[in-house]
Amino acid sequence: MSDADVPTEIEPVDGIEGVDDPDTGHARTTTVRRKMSPFEIFLVVFGVLLVATAIFGSFLPLPDPTQQSLRERLQPPVGFGGGWDHPLGTDALGRDMLSLLVAGTRLTVLIAALSVLVGATVGCGLGLIAGFRRGWVDAVITRLTEAQMALPFLLLAIAIITNRGRSITTLVIVLSIVGWTQYVRIVRADTMAIRERPFIQGLRIGGASDTRIVLRHILPNVAGTIVALATLEVGTMILAESALSFLGLGVVSPDISWGGLLADGRDNLRDAWWVVTLPGLAIVVVVLYVNLAGDALRSRYDLRKRDH
């Protein structure tokens, strides 16, 4: 069989089933083509700002977040009796809240991004293998995924930290272990569906290798779903990190993350609402952003628009 017979260049078009051929000759009025909506532009801008704050936050003209000043401890934000020296007030050690929040962005975003990266790589790999190989390989991976999901993540995290001690590396490991199962479930299902499409069948008959089919033809087709899910998982990871740091098992002083700030502020909850409210708001805003961005990506790339 010559190479020319092998249909390698069939475009993987996502078929929308159940929709009639659009060209049935009905009278039609065509309106504008879809562009980015203002909301989507906002999402992009916010994302750029967030990453920029994480990377370049330390260059901003703000007070040193580690500088303590007991004379200036627990000052309220502007508008609540505080002055412009510390626009968002100070914490129990007299550190500037705004500086702390900016400085906390780095570890919060970094830890979430790293653990999503590790979890997604492992999960997608297993999902592709399970969906493509099927049979006993699929059975083993599926059972393993179910077993992992049966372990409550915070308790498992506590078990790992009890044995290893607390460190940022441990934190990333723990979060990755939590995250991989989601990808397996969804990538597996998508791979199984795409595997049965005619263009993949054509490639198999044509003798393309399995590795090539999976990496060149199946992976690009599930990439949109993976990106959408990974985005949503960034939010899950930020929440998980904040929970562990709050319990004193994640990021602790002198390292700064928003979850760590919540733990620090907890003792002063009654006297100074801002030390707890503000870091929490930062988490809410960023996780909300990530969830909205994930939903937007999903409605663009994921034809089934399901809830992960």
Partner: peptide, 29 residues
């Protein structure tokens, strides 16, 4: 999102009692 299609365009139809009327056409018509 992109366009408006006139799916049914100025159609008249009359059906008397006890009669069977057939509506034929391709799918999408």
């Amino acid at each position: 999102e992109f366009e408006t299609i006139r799916a049914v365009d100025d159609v008249d139809l009359r059906l008397d009692r006890g009669r069977v009327a057939g509506l034929i056409g391709e799918s999408g018509s």
